[in-house]
């Protein structure tokens, strides 16, 4: 989504992010510059506009049932948005499933508005109902900014998802033999200039999980967590995970559990 506000700083960072690295004197200098711009943007997060669109969507009657999402239960009761994303994923009795924010929103869209989940599942990133999803996500996670991650680690369904997520994290497959752990299983590593959080640790998980969904300055796009995970699987050279599939939920439970107690900074701002 194009972002008119704070355009100047964003454009500068975009240029920086895509500039040939050799043009800069030193790698550290570039990291410093990026961090500097990130701070500059922090009190005017470019996601604000997307979040505003999401809030509008949340309140607008849509779909065959011409209803809004204002009665959507994200886990804290119908209509409660404040702090809701910090306690996701969680087990929902009505669906009998562990759901992350995006799959839960799909449930609300289906039950309240009559919108077929396949309209999101089969869509392309940043198009149609998936673009609407991203806006809704931006709105909801903004309402958990600064809130501590608080996922239920005791529910048996959550315990099971955690174990499945952990197995996935170490699961090597594909032509490059990579797993998540190849890139996120050690301290202080990077790929080219991109720093990689060690997602096995609480610190790494809160840095990674706790700062997503995020606005990506390099391409001027707002990405949901499903989008982030999808792109990591792409880099891992696996087959493509289906939107909202259990593998994405299991990984999210694994990461959120590790991040438990840490502070969410959402939406994040990324390279």
């Amino acid at each position: 989504m194009p972002i008119p506000r704070r355009l100047k700083a964003a454009v500068m960072l975009t240029a920086l992010a895509v500039a040939p690295v050799a043009a800069l004197a030193a790698g550290d200098k570039m990291m410093d510059a990026i961090n500097e711009y990130r701070e500059l943007l922090a009190d005017g997060n470019p996601s604000e506009l997307v979040a505003a669109q999401g809030e509008e969507l949340w309140k607008t009657p849509r779909g065959p049932k011409k209803a809004s999402l204002e009665q959507c239960d994200l886990g804290l009761g119908p209509g409660v948005v404040k702090g809701a994303s910090a306690q996701l994923p969680r087990f929902f009795k009505d669906t009998g499933k562990v759901q992350d924010l995006e799959t839960r929103l799909m449930t609300c869209m289906e039950t309240l508005q009559g919108i077929d989940p396949n309209k999101v599942i089969n869509e392309r990133w940043l198009k149609g109902e998936r673009e609407n999803m991203a806006a809704l996500v931006a709105y909801v996670v903004t309402e958990s900014n600064g809130v501590k991650v608080k996922v239920d680690t005791r529910h048996p369904a959550m315990k099971k998802m955690y174990e499945l997520g952990k197995q996935t994290f170490y699961y090597r497959a594909g032509p490059m033999d990579f797993s998540c752990a190849t890139c996120h299983g050690d301290q202080g590593k990077r790929i080219r200039m991109q720093e990689l959080p060690d997602l096995r640790t609480h610190e790494g998980a809160i840095a990674g999980w706790g700062s997503w969904p995020a606005y990506r300055v390099s391409n001027g796009q707002f990405w949901t967590m499903q989008h982030r995970l999808n792109d990591c699987f792409r880099q891992q050279r696996t087959a493509e995970p289906i939107y909202g599939s259990d593998v994405t939920i299991a990984l999210s439970v694994y990461l959120a559990t590790k991040a438990n107690g840490g502070k969410m900074v959402t939406p994040g701002i990324k390279r």
Binding site: A173, G174, P175, R234, R237, T238, A239, E240, P241, I242, S245, D246, V247, T248
Partner: peptide
């Protein structure tokens, strides 16, 4: 149940 073939990245990669 979670993966599908997209382009050259066939499901059997899993």
């Amino acid at each position: 149940a979670s993966f599908k073939t997209t382009g050259i990245a066939a499901k059997h990669r899993m």
